[in-house]
Design a protein around this nucleic acid. Structure first.
Lengths: 239, 239
DNA sequence: CGGAAGTTTGAAGATACTCAAGCGCAGTGG
DNA sequence: CCACTGCGCTTGAGTATCTTCAAACTTCCG
């Protein structure tokens, strides 16, 4: 929709360490700047892309917050992930040149548009970029393994604890507090990610609050006792 | 363990369409033959690789049947997939040069060992291989989205129906019957994949048999009414 | 052939879901 | 500025589904 031909440079971007390969030669870095054709603003509640749309580009989140969802024929949907600054969206489209999930902004957002054929072309010449791309895709596969473990083996408390700790950790890596967080998504959306109904999510929040693990005021969450919250996870000596 | 320096040629392999890119120039095909360093036999019940092991290679299943599992700190485990001839195993290892899941042979099996650095090197020169690799990784991401939908939104009957139809479809693509199948995995392993207990899997099989959807004798399954079985899925106009 | 492993089935119980009602905050318009 | 409306959140009561525990049976493999 709003394709602003903003002048852009990854080389100056504060998110560079998050979404670009490390250890590039200066010349290579300059070439990677060419990757990001444009930026694109996405209004809260609107889709960056939808299922079925032709695939052209990967997107790096610059600001804002996204969810990605797959839908089954009837109304049911599964949120496959939430993406924040520095994270890559759109890898699902590569197989069939068509997106199979949709990406929706949970708040006004901006993404860097990276045409995939240009990425592929440059990856053939810049080894570090090639390796980075492989790692990004592999990381997504491993992340999804974790979600499968969550959905397949954990109860409601474990799921919510894992979700909150993961969110906190990612926010912390971006310089935010690791204990104070503002949820960008509704209880419904959390439920659609965790495989729970929104009432169950709400009840579990309340139970955590009663137990002194959290302080919850709507979307404002403080992790009061991170150690005990982490103790709920089935992953004591986690990787 | 058993690394046999078998002489190997993808160009003659009957599985070529499954695991190699299409439309290669003759010269390119010859170079891809170099990719497969060796084959490796894996005995039933033993691991092709384990979580924590250094990552070196991707593996293409030649014969046999695998499961891949992730484990949480305590005993719990989630089967992330079952792999058959022509399918690729090991993509999880790329991110951190270390495997995060284990791959176990469910029956005596053989795989083609493809050193990843050699794949990456060749992908830089052969565009079709590069694109193929991207597609393989993206396909895995999309497949996992489907599993997440299954685990997050479906009940026991829907899960088992989806599992059986998926298995039948993949076997059919390999020239086997699409209605007659022999399960290579235990009820326990099916349960660990579908997020159900083995008893629930067993009961659901029995219920399907009562309803005339299946004929089940232990691991021998005949899909008696594929249409009605497919009708159970939440995906009437599915992609 | 014998034992271990895998499968089936039943009964009781736990967890999460459904249905329902009420509350609270945010944004809108009087 | 305040009331109003809508959406999201919370909480309760009853219910469905899946799990747990247990026992018996079958198959497979050594």
């Amino acid at each position: 929709m709003s394709e602003a031909p903003t002048s852009v440079a990854c080389s100056n971007c504060s998110l560079r360490e998050l979404c670009m390969p490390a250890g590039l030669a200066p010349g290579e870095l300059a070439r990677i700047d060419e990757l990001v054709a444009t930026r694109r603003k996405v209004r809260r509640g609107t889709a960056l892309f939808q299922a079925g749309e032709p695939f052209t580009s990967l997107y790096a989140v610059r600001t804002g917050f996204f969810k990605t969802c797959v839908a089954s024929g009837d109304g049911r949907g599964q949120v496959t992930g939430f993406q924040m600054a520095g994270e890559i969206i759109g890898l699902d489209g590569i197989v069939n040149d068509r997106h199979t999930c949709e990406a929706v902004a949970l708040e006004d957002a901006e993404v860097c548009v990276m045409p995939f054929d240009r990425i592929a072309e440059l990856a053939r010449e810049v080894g570090a970029l090639q390796h980075h791309l492989h790692r990004v895709m592999s990381r997504e596969i491993v992340r999804e393994h974790g979600v499968m473990l969550l959905l397949g083996t954990m109860n409601a408390e474990e799921r919510l604890a894992a979700f909150l700790l993961n969110l906190a950790q990612r926010l912390h890596a971006r310089g935010f507090s690791s204990s104070e967080l503002v949820l960008r998504m509704t209880r419904q959306e959390i439920g659609n990610f965790l495989g729970l109904k929104l009432e169950t999510v709400s009840r579990t929040f309340s139970r955590f609050a009663e137990q002194g693990l959290l302080e919850v005021r709507h979307r404002q969450v403080r992790i009061a006792d991170p150690a005990r919250l982490a103790g709920l996870l089935p992953n004591p000596g986690g990787t």
